[in-house]
C-alpha cells in the first residue's frame, strides 16, 4: 500500500465513521438559517449521539432477537458501505470490494433490518412507515441501479474506484448520459436520505412518517446506532454524488481536496430544497422517482446511441 492509498484509506474510514454526522449538522444548520432561525450549530448531531449513548435501551414486550439485532445490523451494513464507497480514485480495497451493485445490496439489507424489526414490535406506526418505505424502495432501487449503470457504462466497470476515475475530468460536460444519470441520482439521494419532498425529517407526525416510523420503538444506544446509520447513509450517497455525478478533477489529491467543498454544497442544496419545497403527496413520490428511473434509462439510451 503506497502512502497515497494509505492516506486515502484513513480519510475514508475516519471521514465516514466520524464526519458523517457533520453532514446532517451542516444541513440542519443551513436549514435553520434559511428559515430565519439561528440553529444549534453544525455539531448538534454529535451532542445528540452523546446524549443517546448515555441512555439505557428499552426492550419492547414480546419481541425477539430480531428487534435487538436490527440496529446493529443497520449500523454494520452502513459501516461496510462506508468501507465500500471510495472517496477518491485509487482508494484501496478494504476487504469488501468497491462494487456499485453490492452497495445497493447493503442499502437493501439495512432497510430490511428495520422493517422486520417493525413487525417484531407490531407497532402500527412502525409498520406504516415500513410499508411506505418498502413501496418507495421499489422505485428507488430501480433508479439507483440505473443511475449507477449509466456511470458504470461510461466508465466501463461497476468498480466504484474505476467509475470515479472514468467520470473524472470534463466527462460531465461532454457526456449527456452522465448528466441524465445525475438527475436520477439526485432523486435517489433525496429518497435515501429521507428528505423533502419525499419525507420530512422535522415534523414528527405519526401519520405522515416514512423513515422515522420504524425507529420509533428504539431508545438509548440502539437509537444512537440508527441515527449514526442515517448519517452514514448521507455520507455514502453524497460522496457518490460528489465523486461520480458532480464535476471532479482527475487525480486523487485534487479529488480529496475538493470533496469537502462538494459535500458542503450538496448539504446546502438539500437544505434549500427542504426549505422551499413542500412534501409531496405520498402516492406521487413513487411516480417522481419512477420518472427519475426513466431519465436514467434515457441516459443509457443516449450513451448507446453515442457509442454506436
Amino acid at each position: 500500500m503506497t502512502s497515497q492509498s494509505a492516506s486515502v484509506a484513513v480519510t475514508q474510514i475516519a471521514g465516514g465513521l466520524a464526519l458523517s454526522p457533520l453532514l446532517i449538522g451542516v444541513t440542519q444548520q443551513a436549514k435553520a438559517r434559511l428559515q430565519g432561525r439561528r440553529g444549534a450549530g453544525p455539531l448538534q448531531p454529535y451532542r445528540e449521539l452523546r446524549r443517546l449513548w448515555g441512555k439505557s435501551g428499552v426492550d419492547v414486550e414480546g419481541t425477539t432477537f430480531v428487534y435487538r439485532l436490527a440496529p446493529v445490523i443497520v449500523a454494520a451494513a452502513m459501516g461496510a458501505a462506508i468501507l465500500l464507497v471510495p472517496i477518491a480514485t485509487g482508494a484501496p480495497r478494504l476487504g469488501v470490494g468497491q462494487d456499485a451493485l453490492v452497495l445497493a445490496g447493503l442499502l437493501a439489507l439495512s432497510r430490511l433490518a428495520v422493517c422486520i424489526a417493525a413487525w417484531d414490535t407490531s407497532n402500527g406506526f412502525a409498520l406504516q412507515g415500513a410499508s411506505r418505505d418498502l413501496t418507495l424502495s421499489v422505485f428507488v432501487e430501480a433508479a439507483l441501479v440505473l443511475s449507477l449503470a449509466v456511470a458504470a457504462l461510461v466508465a466501463g466497470t461497476t468498480d466504484l474506484s474505476g467509475v470515479i476515475a472514468g467520470t473524472a475530468g470534463g466527462h460531465l460536460w461532454t457526456t449527456p448520459a452522465l448528466a441524465l444519470g445525475g438527475v436520477a441520482f439526485a432523486l435517489v439521494i433525496v429518497a435515501e436520505t429521507g428528505r423533502q419532498p419525499v419525507d420530512n425529517p422535522d415534523t414528527h407526525l405519526e401519520l405522515t412518517m416514512i423513515y422515522e416510523g420504524p425507529v420509533l420503538e428504539y431508545a438509548g444506544r440502539d437509537q444512537a446506532y440508527l441515527q449514526w446509520a442515517l448519517a452514514a447513509r448521507h455520507w455514502v450517497v453524497l460522496v457518490l454524488a460528489a465523486q461520480v455525478f458532480l464535476p471532479h478533477p482527475v487525480g486523487t489529491w485534487w479529488q480529496l481536496a475538493l470533496l469537502p467543498v462538494s459535500l458542503g454544497l450538496l448539504c446546502i442544496a438539500l437544505a434549500v430544497t427542504e426549505t422551499v419545497l413542500a412534501k409531496m403527496r405520498i402516492l406521487l413520490v413513487p411516480r417522481l422517482i419512477g420518472v427519475g428511473a426513466a431519465v436514467a434509462l434515457l441516459g443509457i439510451v443516449t450513451w448507446l446511441v453515442e457509442t454506436a
Partner: peptide, 17 residues
Amino acid sequence: DMARYGLGIVASPRHAD
C-alpha cells in the same frame, strides 16, 4: 428558536428525556 439550545420535540416517548 428553541432548537438553538439543542432542545427538540421528538416523536416517541422512548426518544425523550
